[in-house]
Each structure stands twice: as C-alpha cells, then as structure tokens.
Design a protein around this nucleic acid. Sequence first.
DNA 1: ATGGTCAATGGTCAAAGATAGTCAAACTAT
DNA 2: ATAGTTTGACTATCTTTGACCATTGACCAT
Lengths: 155, 155
Amino acid sequence: MNVSDIIEKFLLDTLGDELSVNFNRNELATYFAVAPSQINYVLATRFTPERGYMTESRRGGGGYITLIRVSQNVDDVLTNYIDQTLSDGIDYGKACQILERLTADGIFTENEAQLIKAAISDKALLAPTVAKNKLRGSILKCVLLETLKTHDDGE
Amino acid sequence: MNVSDIIEKFLLDTLGDELSVNFNRNELATYFAVAPSQINYVLATRFTPERGYMTESRRGGGGYITLIRVSQNVDDVLTNYIDQTLSDGIDYGKACQILERLTADGIFTENEAQLIKAAISDKALLAPTVAKNKLRGSILKCVLLETLKTHDDGE
DNA sequence: ATGGTCAATGGTCAAAGATAGTCAAACTAT
DNA sequence: ATAGTTTGACTATCTTTGACCATTGACCAT
C-alpha cells in the first residue's frame, strides 16, 4: 500500500462522522515523512468534489487546511453530474468517484455501482483513449438520466 | 515444462481456495527470472474469463495485480452469453433479451437491468452504427463478467 | 496609523520514480 | 511449418519529490 492511500485513510478516520476536519499541511507531511505537496496530491486525487469533498485553506503564519464533506440534495447532485459529464467526457477514476459518492448517498446499491463501473471501464470501451472519455461521459449520462427518472417515479 | 506453466501452477497454488490473490508483477517476474511482460502472457493465456478468471490492476507506486476467480461451473448461461457476445457484437434488441432472460433467472434485479440497458442504448453509444454492436458486446461482456465475480462473492 | 520586511505557511507544476500494459520480434517445441 | 513462449522496447498511469510562487500575519520603523 502506498503512502497516499495511507494518508487518505488517516484523513477519513480523522474526519469520522464530522462535517470537517482542520489540519496543518507541514505537520501532516512531517508526520507521514512525505513532501508537503503530497498532501495536496492526496486531496486533489482523493477528496474531490466528485466524491463530495471540498477544501478551504489559508497560507501564512497559523495557516491551515480544512477538509469539508459537502452534503447536497440528491437530485441536485445527479443533475449536476449529468450537466457536467454531458459535454466534456470523463475519465474512469472520476466516474468511479461519482458512482461511489452516489452509492454512499443511497442512489445506487453497491452491486449496481459495480456493474456500471464494469460497463464504463477502459476494458469495456474498445476505443482510442481520446474517444473513451467522451464515450464514457455519454454512457454515464444516460445511466444517470435513467436513474433520475426512476428516482422521481419512486417518490 | 516451460516457465509459463510453472508460473500458472504457482498462481493456482497461491490462489488455493481463496477468491482472489494479490501480487506485484515485477516481484513475481524477478522470482521466476522472466521478463515482467511474461506475467501478462501467463494471465492472458491461462487465466481468461473463459476459464473462470479475471484480473484487476493498478500502475504506479504500490501498484499490483489481483487475480480473481469467478464462478467456473455454475453459471453456464452467463458464460455462454459471454462467449457469444465476446467476438461478434450484439444489437440492442438481442442485448435486451439477454438481460431480460437473466433478470427472470434472478441474476439481475429489474433496476440493474434498466441501468445496463441505458448504458448500452444507441443513445449512450456515440459511435458509427457499425461499431456500436461491437462496442455493446464488449460492454455487456464486462458487465456479465463483473456479475460472475460478485455472484461468487455472495455465496 | 501606515507601510515595509520577513518568516511561516500553503499552492502549483513539472520532473523523477515506480509500476503495469502492449505489441511485435526472436526463439522454441511440436 | 505452425503454434506457443520469451524477451525487450515502448507506452500509460500513478506516486513522490523538489524547486519556485503566493499569501498571511507579526513586528518594526516612521
């Protein structure tokens, strides 16, 4: 297991049930004996908006980083993702983050998320790398739209 | 006996009764004094879906390969479909039939089938018509494989 | 009060490192 | 000859590091 994964886990543990957690970048970096910028790397790759996180920070003396779990109305989340993935395409990692987030929100079951992941994996999408993201975006969009439909029906 | 056979045997032994085994490609290659890519060769020729195996992996620091056993004997229906959709591609109607059949068999829930249908609809697959069936086949294959995997987990 | 300086933060980005994947050429066994 | 194996060059992806930049607040001089 690499250090970034360990730091991720540590932050998740520290976050626990709380809405946010506050820390000092250099301190954390020293604790895990990594370059300070690796903290940014972990935040950028693991605690993304797709997964429902955001950060705030301040430089200078007494500087800090706050990691925040954002909660949002589920339909809004869905529509946001639909709008976003609509045009630009999306890579597999980001797509998984979205699916995990939606699973955490109870929109998908674990199994459904797994199936969708399989459907949009690089392996499934036999296309040149460039085209893949576009295609994946389109597929995901259709799936989310379908979900939005049945979700609305359901209530 | 050639080295590939030996590596195959080693992996089978290591796998034992477990559902999956995790290893590092370079380490394994070094251990058997072969080129790293030979590990891929062994996986590609011996641990195929048709034989009841699949793999997952990650590159970069802390990278790994996971060899996963999927159900070998039980799900003949599924494996048949997998073989069929593997090569030729499949049109949307046929795909839906398969999904409905599998839903009737209790492999998929209604909802799961809906999601998959959305994912392989003509709308989702932005590609030339000719390419669509091929692509749909590939996606469906991945989904079915995934199902075999999680199916095994459950029992 | 006002502005200047400096140390203590955090941010960015590109390079280096660490893996795994692909593919075709060379080799080997049948 | 043909099919299967082995190798290596090249590629793709993920992680880790470090050099350089930006911001903030404390302290100081005026």
